[in-house]
């Protein structure tokens, strides 16, 4: 197992380095000079050169990358242009909030998604299947920012049960696990859970159908297993794939939550990314993307390892 872990880590390293290259180049691919965002429009040529030297933009690209990479390795992602605070602090705070939201949303989505998927797959073509499939197709198709707004209108504006925006009553942007903060989490989490729920339900339904058509299911019945016993085997067989999909969905939610976080003003990474883009805060943008990408890589690694633990056939590849 240890050898396998090291093996997988070795595989991940080039991917991680590739990610840093892309993040670094991002700044240089954006139209115009990265400095034009900071410098006033009427800055003198001399000042421009000075700034270039100060930020290291006068050196050749590979050297710039090496210097930047060295700093990244030491946890220095630079400073935000807008606030002047270290990018790493800003990003980690936002990532923490997003992580909470995404984890809760994925947990809700996974619970209901697998439930719907197993029921639909097992009772294929029954009305239960049709109902579960309808709900999951709805989950995939409905624009979630729209769903978010609808939920806010119903539960905040009309009924007044739940707060519409923010992460907590104090507005500090730090979510804490207590009852007051929990109320703020409910609406965005439900809105966000609809996507993974739909995707997981569809995947699990297809998976269950596939497993049920395999020979071993007939063999299980032939040895006299009850339907519940057969179902247990089906669940065990479906688990690795369902978990893989869940992991990918979690990764997707970690980065792809811009719309929902903006609708609910949830102080997460998507919200931060949105702000960074509109304020042309390039170090912040770069840092956020880098951290999110690294999360994705780590998540895939974790899913890989978990799958191996669950399915004996994927071994020490």
């Amino acid at each position: 197992m240890l050898a396998f872990l090291l093996h997988r880590l070795l595989y991940v390293t080039p991917v991680a380095i590739g990610v840093t290259v892309v993040c670094f180049l991002l700044v240089h691919l954006t139209p115009g000079d990265p400095l034009t965002a900071i410098l006033p429009a009427d800055a003198t040529l001399e000042l421009q050169e000075q700034m270039k030297a100060a930020y290291g933009f006068d050196k050749p690209l590979p050297v710039q990358y090496a210097l930047w990479f060295w700093k990244v390795l030491h946890g220095d992602l630079g400073h935000s242009i807008a606030t002047g605070r270290p990018v790493l602090t800003e990003v980690m705070r936002a990532v923490k909030n997003t992580l909470i939201l995404a984890t809760v949303a994925t947990a809700i989505g996974f619970t209901f998604g697998t439930l719907f998927g197993f029921v639909a797959g097992y009772f294929r073509d029954s009305w239960l299947d049709k109902l579960a499939s309808f709900v999951s197709v709805l989950g995939v198709s409905v624009p979630h920012y729209w769903l978010g707004m609808v939920l806010v209108i119903i539960f905040s504006a009309q009924l007044g049960w739940l707060p519409p925006t923010g992460a907590g009553p104090d507005g500090s942007g730090d979510w804490r696990p207590d009852a007051a903060h929990l109320r703020y989490l409910i609406l965005p989490a439900i809105t966000m859970s609809v996507i993974p729920m739909g995707v997981i339900a569809r995947t699990v339904r297809a998976l269950v159908g596939d497993i049920l058509s395999q020979d071993f299911v007939e063999a299980l019945r032939a040895k006299g297993m009850s339907e519940f016993g057969v179902f247990r085997h089906v669940v065990t067989n479906a688990a690795p794939t369902a978990l893989a999909v869940m992991g990918l969905q979690l990764g997707y939610l970690l980065g792809g939550s811009i719309l929902i976080e903006t609708v609910f003003s949830w102080p997460g990474s998507g919200f931060l990314l949105n702000a960074a883009i509109f304020q042309r805060d390039l170090p912040l943008l770069q840092g956020t993307i880098l951290v999110l990408a690294m999360f994705f890589v780590a998540l895939n690694l974790a899913v890989d390892v978990l799958q191996t633990a669950l399915d004996p056939r994927i071994k020490r590849g």
Partner: peptide, 24 residues
């Protein structure tokens, strides 16, 4: 039926590679 299968009558399948659950 499920009490009858496996105890009174048992079956051997053509493809033993497919007739066992791969993850148990």
């Amino acid at each position: 039926l499920s009490a009858f299968r496996g105890s009174t009558v048992a079956m051997i399948f053509q493809e033993p590679g497919l007739a066992f659950d791969p993850v148990y």
